Simulated scan of single mutants.
Amino acid sequence: MTLATPTDTATRIHWREGDIEHSALWRSQSGMAAPKRVVVANDQTPADTAYRLACEGTALLWRGDFQNARQLLQALARRADAPPKGKRARAPKLPASPAEAFHLHRQAQSQRARTLAMLLIPFEADYSIALRRAPEVALACNEAYGRADEPFVASLRELLGVIGAHEWRKNGVDVPALGAGARIHPWYGVFSPIRGEYLQLVDQAPLPAGAARAFDIGTGSGVLAAILARRGLPQVVATDMDPRALSCARENLQRLQLERQVEVVQADLFPPGLADLVVCNPPWLPGRPSSAIEHAIYDPDSRMLKGFLLGVGAHLAAGGEAWLILSDLAEHLGLRTREQLLGWCADGGLALIERHDTRPVHPRASDASDPLHAARSAEITSLWRLRAR
């Protein structure tokens, strides 16, 4: 489900300590520009001061105890999430539409992320961190960044995400559709298949009669290709554009001993040839991703969705089916209409055979405090079985 290559912004960051000017490589997988203003912070820096500086766009390069830096980050998050007080306290703007509520929510989340990213950690060239009580992060950083060849500076918040992704990759995600004990191990920047409802749809929908070859478009972790192979498809071709996703999918298929059934290839949407079944789980929301992992969630101008629907007919064998796995959350948010979706199906010469629906069970679907609760509570995930007219 990942088609775009993550952005690793590599520029220089500059700061002064005492009378000495310093410079180091700046790394950001989200594409965040190197902060222009940097001050040194340590265990004596008050949280209120740190939060004010971060809100103003001044980064804090940490020189104290690593675990204290984590506690300061938590303190910054609490301040970012607290309701405004004093002169800043105003009645919240009521959005005029679900789409406006969504854009205001994304704007607030983006501002929060920028603020929390202002707490920085220095790394040595071997990924060691020369701070008291700093953890060993070389393996996690190698997985996310690749080989390092000089010291650099990165956001503590990003580092914690890198560590968390390493744990996901090490422990894996249980996927009942693949059989008892089968797990998928997502890599950093590759979408984790934790929403099981769409996996169940792919596992349970009836296969086209006599299907022998399938394509999985935008394979990401390789989970859908693995499910199709486990269902008995003798040949599956899984595509993606992101080299990290391709490597992740290959590793997962090897773990599951499915590498002989599934070929993983780099392609922009479709591989050459025809298939009896072409499956695609594109990003569900039109919008611009702001980080590596968001490429699996946001589809700029619905490029992948439209590309699949307009092009899949030319890749279907006689009697073949195209399966589109898609949530209608974008419709409830006012970001896309059902008429647009049906129009792209018609433009691609596709007719609906049947639609299989299910409701999500993730925690946000029942969280009344979520700003997008009305849309999430109405969300339905569907598998659209389509054929060429």
Rank of each mutant, 00 (worst) to 15 (best):
G164N: 09
A134P: 07
D149P: 01
V137W: 02
E167I: 08
D149C: 05
E167S: 09
R147H: 13
A154R: 12
A182Q: 13
V173A: 01
F152Q: 02
I184L: 13
A148N: 14
A177P: 00
P176L: 07
S192M: 13
C141P: 07
L178A: 13
A134T: 02
R147I: 15
E150A: 07
P151C: 15
A144I: 02
E143Y: 11
E158M: 11
V137H: 04
N142R: 14
I163V: 15
N142E: 14
S192N: 15
V153N: 09
L178F: 06
A165W: 10
R183L: 05
L178N: 08
N142M: 11
G164I: 02
A180L: 00
N142K: 07
R183D: 04
L160A: 01
A148Q: 14
F152Y: 07
R157M: 00
D174F: 04
G164E: 12
N142L: 14
E150P: 07
A182H: 09
V190D: 14
P151R: 15
I184P: 07
N142T: 10
G172H: 03
Y145W: 12
S192G: 15
A140M: 08
V153R: 07
L159Y: 02
V175P: 01
S155K: 07
V162A: 00
L159V: 04
S192L: 12
G181S: 08
E150G: 02
A138C: 11
A182F: 10
A140E: 02
P135L: 03
R183K: 12
I194D: 13
G172Q: 04
N142D: 08
V190P: 10
P151V: 14
A148Y: 14
F191L: 14
G189Y: 05
L139E: 15
G146H: 13
V190L: 02
G172L: 03
A134M: 05
G189I: 01
A154M: 13
N171H: 14
S192V: 15
V153Y: 10
K170R: 13
S192H: 13
G189M: 04
A182T: 01
G181H: 04
K170T: 12
W187C: 11
E143N: 10
F191S: 14
P151Y: 15
R183Y: 05
G161C: 01
P151H: 15
A180P: 00
V137Q: 09
C141I: 04
E167L: 12
H166D: 13
A182Y: 08
N171V: 11
E143F: 12
G172Y: 05
E143S: 10
W187P: 05
V137M: 10
A140G: 10
A144T: 04
